[in-house]
Design a protein around this nucleic acid. Sequence first.
DNA 1: CGCGTTCTTGACTGCTTTCAAAGATGGTGG
DNA 2: CCACCATCTTTGAAAGCAGTCAAGAACGCG
Lengths: 244, 244
Amino acid sequence: MQLSYPTFEERLVMRLAALTELSRSDRVKLQEAAQSSFVISEEKPLKLSGPSGRSRLLVVDGWLARSTSHQDGRRQIIGFYVPGDVISPGMALKPVITTDLTSVGQATLCPAPEGQSLARAYAAAADVEQAYLHRQVARLGRMNAFERVEDWMWEMRDRLLLSGMAQPQAFQLPITQDILADVLGLTPVHVNRTLKLLREVGVLTWRSGYVRFAHEGASSQVACEELGSRSSRASGGTPFTGQA
Amino acid sequence: MQLSYPTFEERLVMRLAALTELSRSDRVKLQEAAQSSFVISEEKPLKLSGPSGRSRLLVVDGWLARSTSHQDGRRQIIGFYVPGDVISPGMALKPVITTDLTSVGQATLCPAPEGQSLARAYAAAADVEQAYLHRQVARLGRMNAFERVEDWMWEMRDRLLLSGMAQPQAFQLPITQDILADVLGLTPVHVNRTLKLLREVGVLTWRSGYVRFAHEGASSQVACEELGSRSSRASGGTPFTGQA
DNA sequence: CGCGTTCTTGACTGCTTTCAAAGATGGTGG
DNA sequence: CCACCATCTTTGAAAGCAGTCAAGAACGCG
């Protein structure tokens, strides 16, 4: 079980320092910023495109989701913002697509302080965010349900690890299966079945908001192999349940 | 039929001026840059992550594709760069995912000139690129084959229109169906069938590298309606808690 | 303890893939 | 000018992965 998380200050410094060398003064600014944080109530959409959302924000606690939806109810979550992530407003001259930003549960944010080295960190964060978008495209375009779920789980582990919000083989996942379905472009029912499969095959378990990997560092590559060996065996009752 | 395209200079100015007001001197810089363009031979991957690729580039002719691929052969094209687009290197500290940049057919590039107003244009271009990534995620995650193809076609029309590389109802599409399949996360066979359907339903035709829309301005919204009226309902979405 | 949300599971449907092969298309050389 | 070849486009039939519909079980909360 997760014993304790880093403090708000520690998360921000930890995460952003991983991107660039932060000057001492900028680290102090981050810690000060964390003091003046504010809470976003559950499921209340943020308007970042308007004049109010012209400033950059930092996530200090909770998860935020960027999503888009049709009027027929279909919804796609583009991605999440987790503690330490930078939310940039964007100039949004011509809305190629409109996205909403909502908090998952309750989230705490703070205005992003300015600074020499922080500017570099924000730029790097934008690059990383783009890379994760690329990966999300690849995931949705060319991976099956099994691979999508596993790949995504490892990705979140990696990201949360940077701000101390995860352990090497486990992390807290504060979303429902419905939401995960909207992230991975699947139906809730099929997400549920896929999770069951991941559990049976011995990849990971997700119970009461807590994800635990059965084995260390397995990238999406393993997912492919698992899948290949499973299907070649025609059907798989696989031993090896996850450890407690 | 396409009578003639704008000159290299015109494309760059046209496209970037649509993002921000360009100063007179910066427009001149763009025109000069277009003079010193170089050609990328067909299907030769560019290495933009290395030290050589530290500079920003502008596309003046042809299409480039950013893609990623598994070792089992599956390939996903993240997106295209078309004339007027800005290719930024990215700091790529930790490769969350590795992507290749290859030219589709033959492409012409030039180094991106620096300038006060150009800097704003590049920033805006980056924002727009991110918006198109969001849209690509939504397309792959929550649209069926029919909608994906139509939505993508309109998107490319819109983008090419900005640099004068398209007409309101037609544009030249220099790719194969195989490549389109890798963009939309489908198989070539199904792309072919979907194109046939789009043709029969009277949405668009694509013959000898030339796309022509049957009707004016139909967004992806129309795709949904078409689909709905034509046969069974589109794949239902996942309603969210507390919907209206 | 009751109720709403979330999680599971089963049975069936269907969109997309797979496998295979025939039909265009375009460029090249005789 | 036409045969020839590689590439690309079309089409059919069958299989599979994911979606749909429905209902029961488990969970959390006041």
